[in-house]
């Protein structure tokens, strides 16, 4: 399988104080594919994901070295506009966090801060992305109800719509189904499989079965190190490294 690179990570190191959470990571994330980051908990999966949209910046005591190229631009370059980088990526966190406002305002939040004021235009955007995240039919009659009243599964789809509404190129998901029931998880997975036609998707998961269902490309981390990466059929079926074999067999987890 041929891959076109979308995000290129080069010698990325991340320190929390003196703890080295990512060690010299170099990997290319393919364009318009689903890349799944796997590895035992505490190995740096979230840290890697948060490096992509520079959310690591918002934490204290974090030091980053190395480069991450996105569209040919190093996102850690001090000259780069951080809000501009973040606008290119939608983020789904482990537990959905709707903003403290209505369903409509959640989706319209991003477009509004990026300058869209026109009511009709906003209405169109909200409808479009709620449909794209298959939430529209469930909420179209109560768009102005508080988002906090939705079920967890609905909230996660709302967060997806909210992320898509800023027209990103990339969707990042940090164990995006771990707080959801099986039915809701399935719906989110279904969305990902459809969305990869238009978006580059990077998902962290600790569920191996989920990785098998979704992944085109797999990145395996262990204790902050990149052990192995490659097309899903290679890594998940026939890994080269002993460590990866053991993880996939369920010996280390």
């Amino acid at each position: 399988m041929e891959f076109k690179t979308h995000i290129s990570v080069q010698n990325l190191d991340v320190f929390y104080g003196t703890e080295r959470a990512l060690k010299d990571i170099t990997v290319d994330i393919p364009d318009k594919k689903i890349t799944v980051i796997i590895g035992p908990s505490g190995c740096g999966k979230t840290t890697l994901l948060k490096s992509f949209n520079r959310l690591v910046d918002s934490m204290d005591e974090v030091k980053v070295s190395g480069k991450v190229f996105l569209d040919g631009e190093n996102i850690f370059d001090p000259k780069v506009e951080i809000t501009h980088i973040r606008k290119k990526m939608g983020l789904l966190s482990q537990k959905p966090f709707p903003l403290p406002m209505s369903i409509y305002d959640n989706v319209a939040y991003g477009p509004r801060i990026h300058g869209i004021r026109d009511k009709k235009e906003l209405g169109r955007i909200v409808e479009h992305y709620l449909k794209q995240s298959s939430l529209w039919d469930e909420v179209k009659d109560r768009l102005h109800a508080p988002a906090s009243r939705l079920s967890l599964g609905q909230q996660q789809r709302l967060c997806l719509a909210r992320g898509l509404a800023v027209e990103p190129e990339i969707i990042l998901g940090d164990e995006p189904t771990s707080a959801l029931d099986p039915k809701s998880s399935q719906r989110i997975e279904q969305r990902f499989l459809e969305l990869k036609r238009e978006y580059t998707i990077v998902i962290v998961t600790h569920i191996l079965r989920q990785a098998m269902r979704l992944a085109d490309y797999v990145v395996f981390l262990y204790l902050g190190e990149l052990i192995e990466h490659g097309p899903a059929e290679d890594i998940l079926v026939d890994p080269k490294e002993e460590m990866t074999k053991e993880y996939i067999k369920g010996i280390i987890s």
């Binding site: 949209n53 809000t83 973040r86 966090f97 967060c159």
Partner: peptide, 14 residues
């Protein structure tokens, strides 16, 4: 919660 800050930052908010 920290995640609420992140949710907003992730959308490109200042």
């Amino acid at each position: 919660p920290e995640e609420l800050f992140d949710a907003s930052y992730a959308l490109g908010a200042t």
